[in-house]
Simulated scan of single mutants.
Amino acid sequence: MADDLMDSEMTQFAQMQQQRVALQEGIMKVNNVCYDKCITGKPSSSLDSWTEGCITNCVGRFIDAQKFILNRLQQKASNMG
């Protein structure tokens, strides 16, 4: 009984760690894409209005795309089920 509880806790911990890693990888991907797209020239200590707007739009488009893909996958899954 105690072993089952320990296995369940370890499985839950492993899943949480995998989710954390996936989230960090997603954030890193957005950072890299938006940095490459929006930071032109040498970075400075502050963002000009164009760069700030570019980053905001880039992150927003990335989130919109992820939502769209997730919705499509959910639709396909419900159609298959």
Rank of each mutant, 00 (worst) to 15 (best):
D48N: 10
G60S: 13
W50V: 14
I69T: 15
K37R: 10
I39Q: 02
S44F: 02
G41L: 12
C38E: 02
Q24S: 14
M1E: 12
D64Y: 11
N71C: 02
Q24I: 15
E25N: 08
S8D: 15
S44Y: 02
N57I: 08
G41F: 00
R61P: 04
F13M: 14
Y35G: 09
L23M: 15
M16F: 15
G41Y: 00
S78V: 06
L47T: 04
Q74Y: 05
V33I: 14
V33F: 14
C58I: 05
M80D: 14
C58Y: 03
I39F: 01
I55Q: 01
G60N: 06
Q19R: 13
E25Q: 09
A77C: 06
C54D: 09
G81R: 04
L23E: 01
Q17P: 10
F62K: 04
L73C: 05
E9F: 03
S78N: 12
K67G: 05
L73K: 03
E25Y: 11
D7F: 07
I39A: 02
E52R: 11
D3H: 14
R20D: 07
K37A: 12
R61I: 05
F62S: 00
A65R: 03
G60K: 05
Q17N: 08
L23S: 06
Q12C: 13
T11F: 07
K29Q: 05
V21M: 06
D4L: 04
K37F: 09
N79K: 06
N79A: 09
D36I: 04
M1V: 00
V21W: 08
N32M: 15
D7N: 13
V59Q: 01
Q75V: 06
K76M: 00
Q74F: 03
C58H: 05
A77I: 06
V59L: 10
W50F: 15
P43A: 11
L47V: 11
L70N: 01
I55W: 03
E9S: 04
A14L: 15
T56K: 11
